[in-house]
Amino acid sequence: MHPAFSVLIFTVTSGAGYGLLAWLGAGQLLGYSQSYTSDQQIILGVIAMVLVSIGLLSSTMHLANPKNAWRSFSRFRTSWLSREAVFAILLYPVAALYAAALFWQWSCINWLAGLSMVLALITLFSTSMIYASLKTIRQWNTPMVPALFMAYALSSGGLLFLTVSGFFDAFSPQLLKTVTGLVLITLALKMVYFFWQGKPQGATIQTATGFSQASVRLLDAGHSAPTFLNREFGYQIAADKLLRLRIVMTLVTFIAPLVMFYCVLQGTAAELLLVAWVMMMTGLLLERWLFFAEARHVVRLYHGEQRT
């Protein structure tokens, strides 16, 4: 699949934003947000919603006909993309009420915190299901994709929560240990995904053309220059380059931040977490790029590939 930059930015930044909001809401319910003043919590919420908004604006950039984008709220009963749009917009008034509740100390604050957290998680899940629901791309059509999207968002959001807390002198080592555990789980899940992805499976050129008893080779694709299908689905990347990018991605997204977590737990200044967060976000951009570049749509079979 062609990795559209606007979609990479969208899924990574809005993921971090929703993750941060989920951590903030959970903190209100579980009590660890109380180490912040309510003003500081509002700042955290604003950071989350700014990240989400950057992502959502970026997502509209990949639309070829954005003047009809408002219609995307209409098919939430069937389309995950529509559900994502509906929940993303629903979250704004709820998050605003949550901020108001923090500011004026309303008694219903726990309800609003919980609702914000749930909506953020549902929006994340909807985004991941856009990809996971496509039977045409076997690398995406797995429950691991929603699990990974949620794990990335909660890792990067949780790390941002801690980073900001460092600047507010409200840093909690206990919370950092929780985030470390989460990052380790995410890393393990990603490794499982890489191994699973390498296993040959799914449609082949035989099932695609119906000649299941013979070898099939493409003689002529029928066009002299690349078409929409080639540009959108024909993205090709060399295997050795892929391996190198996977290693770089794992180091930048997971290993380097984990080393920095260790340093911070050993007493280094908590400001180091900002570096860790920037590294993780950069790594996640690369991860999302790989997520697209490695996904192989079945239409490639008609253009001569033997399997996906």
């Binding site: 699949m1 639309l63 003047k67 009809n68 984008a69 995307s72 079945v298």
Partner: peptide, 20 residues
Amino acid sequence: DKCMGCNLCSWACPYGAREL
């Protein structure tokens, strides 16, 4: 008149029948 050009339907189609 309603299409916003998000390409998702072309992703869902295994036969390459949809082109932007």
